[in-house]
Design a protein around this nucleic acid. Structure first.
Length: 405
RNA sequence: GGACGGUUACCCAAGUGGACAACGGGGACUGACUGUAAAUCAGUUGGCAGAGGCCUUCGGAGGUUCGAAUCCUUCACCGUCCA
């Protein structure tokens, strides 16, 4: 790759909401890449993650993949775990009733974070740092000095604060500190490039750059990445919204979840969630536009790619076969839970027993809707009894094999 | 400290004494169709029950009433504004 190709590669998937800013960042990045080449010193890249839960999802990996790209080009990546910020708790999620984390919990989460992150990042080349290391050392006086770089107006022009201000919703004072802490992280790490999602635009582009300038450093370059939508294709992927694709799941589930995204979300997934090169991504999107690739096949390709990032190619292949068998052909999957029947029993009771349905009323509704089959025959009677072995199917996806005990 | 406003099912949100198991939207589920678990259309979305009957639910507790999600008292929590 020549220098321009590198810039293009590293800027792929970025979203600044402003052409000028994007252009300025690309130029700064190019300059700094040239500097690095000439000096022989790699650039320092960092991105921070708050270990609030143990579950990382594909949305988290967007920035990690970007870090990985920098690693591939020989730069130094620091994975910052926000042990200090998590202890305080992110106030923007206050309504979610998140319990205050203890230091032990944070450390435990942090450990699993790093492990999961290595599915994307190069373990050998990744530096892990905890921001409590330096943030806990700051005095009140330090904080005042940091804060004096900013005006309330600067914060209030930020969209999410602006909206809340206009709606008379609370904005807590310490929410403003988040930006300061993040800026201080960048300062301590002497960062050249900071990676983050568009929700971090202010923290990276304003707060970090200002604070670094204040300390006489060259302000970091912001690589601001577009936000990956969840499986609904609309809003940001997040566990609390239930539209996430967790990393800790089976290959089959991950494959299926990718297949369930709406067609229109495919370009973003291609851009943000795969390890494809810029050209491949562009070709993919173009083929979709022209209709030269079948949308279903395109999505399969996406699903295969994404699953093989986190598992092996072989497992991705198996997940694909599983999907084709179960959904495309409508066949029966291989691994079906079984139920030992020792005496005749009401079908609905069995299903409630094993938790395939929540209540008998729910089962009755399913029967009304032709949603339950026994050995391939639609069950029509609420009081149907099972007294022989066979296969129960609930909806399209749930099965239970009844064995005679 | 003061003045208001709020707390309804998985989520958002209507409902201000009887027609409320509770409008509407989202989500989820089922079916049809398809290109897949996409899109679209239709239906379902408290529990129990050999059917229209019973039980539980509208922040908690108590009360008024033949009857309350709706009125009163009190407690808890949340929010905005003025200090």
């Amino acid at each position: 790759m020549n220098i321009d190709e590198k810039v293009k590669y590293l800027m792929q998937g970025t979203e600044y909401g402003d052409q000028h800013m994007a252009h300025a960042m690309a130029i700064e990045l190019k300059d700094r890449l040239i500097e690095a080449e000439q000096s022989g010193w790699p650039l320092k890249i960092y991105c921070g993650y708050d270990p609030r839960t143990t579950d990382l999802h594909i949305g988290h990996t967007v920035t990690m993949r970007k870090l990985r790209q920098f690693q591939e080009l020989g730069h130094e990546v620091t994975f910052v775990i926000g042990t200090y910020t998590s202890l305080i708790g992110d106030p923007s999620d206050k309504d979610k009733l998140r319990p205050q984390l203890t230091p032990d919990e944070v450390l435990e989460n942090a450990r699993t974070y790093a492990e999961q992150a290595y599915r994307v990042l190069d373990r050998e080349k990744t530096i892990i740092r905890y921001n409590a290391e330096w943030l806990s050392q700051l005095s009140f006086a330090d904080l005042i000095k940091l804060a004096s770089n900013f005006t309330i107006q600067q914060f209030l022009t930020r969209e999410n604060f602006r909206i809340r201000w206009d709606n008379n919703e609370p904005i807590h004072l310490h929410e403003l500190f988040y930006s300061l802490m993040q800026g201080y992280d960048a300062h301590v790490l002497e960062t050249d490039v900071q990676v983050g999602g568009t929700d971090q635009l202010f923290n990276i582009m304003t707060a970090s750059r200002k604070i670094m300038s204040y300390y006489g450093q060259k302000p970091n370059i912001g690589i601001i990445l577009d936000i990956l939508p969840g499986t609904d294709g609309e809003v940001k992927m997040s566990k609390s919204l239930g539209n996430h694709i967790p990393l800790n799941t089976t290959p089959e589930d991950m494959f299926g979840k990718v297949m369930s995204i709406p067609d229109k979300a495919m370009p973003k997934y291609a851009k943000l969630a795969t390890s494809w090169q810029t050209d491949t991504v562009n070709e993919f999107c173009e083929a979709l536009n022209k209709g030269s690739i079948h949308p279903r096949d395109a999505k399969m390709k996406l699903a295969f790619e994404i699953v093989s990032i986190f598992y092996s190619q072989k497992e991705a292949e198996e997940a694909k076969m599983h999907f084709i068998t179960l959904f495309q052909k409508g066949d029966i999957p291989e691994n079906i839970p079984t139920y030992e029947l020792d005496q005749p029993k009401l079908l609905l009771d069995i299903l409630v027993d094993v938790g395939l349905i929540d209540s008998k009323n729910q089962g009755r509704r399913l029967i009304e809707q032709n949603g339950i089959k026994f050995n391939g025959v639609i069950v029509a009677d609420f009081n149907a009894e099972v007294n022989a072995k066979g296969l129960i199917q609930v909806g399209k996806r749930k099965f239970l094999r009844v064995l005679k005990g």
